[in-house]
Design a binder for these strands. Sequence first.
DNA 1: CCTACCGATCGGTAGG
DNA 2: CCTACCGATCGGTAGG
Lengths: 218, 218
Amino acid sequence: MMAADVQASADAGRRPRGRPRKTAGERDDGNRRHALLSHAAHLFRRQGFAATTTRDIAAAAGMQSGSPFYHFKSKNALLFAVMEEGMHTALAHQRAALPPETLADLSPMGQLHKRIQAHFEVLLGPGNDFVPVMLYEQRSLSLRQHKQLGRLVTEYEALWSPILAALHANGQLRAPVGLARLLILGALNWSVQWFDAKKDASLQDLTEAAVGLFIKES
Amino acid sequence: MMAADVQASADAGRRPRGRPRKTAGERDDGNRRHALLSHAAHLFRRQGFAATTTRDIAAAAGMQSGSPFYHFKSKNALLFAVMEEGMHTALAHQRAALPPETLADLSPMGQLHKRIQAHFEVLLGPGNDFVPVMLYEQRSLSLRQHKQLGRLVTEYEALWSPILAALHANGQLRAPVGLARLLILGALNWSVQWFDAKKDASLQDLTEAAVGLFIKES
DNA sequence: CCTACCGATCGGTAGG
DNA sequence: CCTACCGATCGGTAGG
């Protein structure tokens, strides 16, 4: 579900006990590193970046307080890595949900429906803390980090613009395309604040409501 | 524009120089207290609550590091006071923009237009940091604070529901009223993230775009 | 509201 | 990745 869980422990031999020791030739770097990432994402989302300590993250991953800095050069680098993974997940999910070669088979409204559905799935699906962190913690990024992430964000927005332009041309979307995109994505992103997987509506209900809200009768 | 700027220094007599000293009988409590509030709002918005120190706030208000605690019992109490003022401002502005007795003169769509415009004015108008802080820092509230603020939020939402219900009955709003309200307010609130008073559109453009996006032709 | 201060915590590092 | 640690900072308080 969530990007790559690189190689776990391939060599499942007897281990003395206690913490796993890496023997020569065994590389589980990606393993521990990603454990840090995903606990960081969870804590950043719940408490915010500034209110989360590197000790919290280390403890959640079962490490000692200094160990995160073996994998990441700073707390900030950890945040950026979380956000980058969030964007990559979102982009991959959108591309899988609406592959370029199937575009011709769907009406603009059908395409928007797919986009909105995929957006909600990544944003509100179980265990996806990476994207919410990306949306709500950009303030804590350095300027260069912000610019670098901005490239991925632009890429993501570009997936929406042609669809909205077609709807606008159709008369199914009033409002200038640029503002419409910002308002629509805002409506979707804000759902992180109130959507509760238990009560409330399902992701499907949400998707229908959003399409109905934005799109005029054909 | 921004709630109450209680009594400034009524007794504008000669002051020795240096910091103002309160002589017996002179009470400028509200004055300094509100200076703290408004600098806190500004810093909380720019840096986030957790990343802002009480020393930052004190310095911005021209005080020493311990002085904010003379006015507020904790950093958290300061945050709550900022949010409460934010909600009171928003409620007051909505009521002024669409007084109950004028409701009958406007179509549901005209009413929604007024509501959206007033919302943008408070959210994006100059010097209004209180509402953005309220929207984006609720995570840092205690449970009782959150509940107390929740009452004001409910009050605010109640200003929208009848209008949306009327539009729904009219056929001008597709999507269930409850979800529509959440999605619409989300679209508006997210504008804090991207609206730049300089470039981009004006508040007026934004309002037109939002109404056009949500509402079907009459 | 200032002065002077405390205890606790935090991000990060050396050295293995 | 752990151990042991440092310098800096932070929220808050006593006492005036």
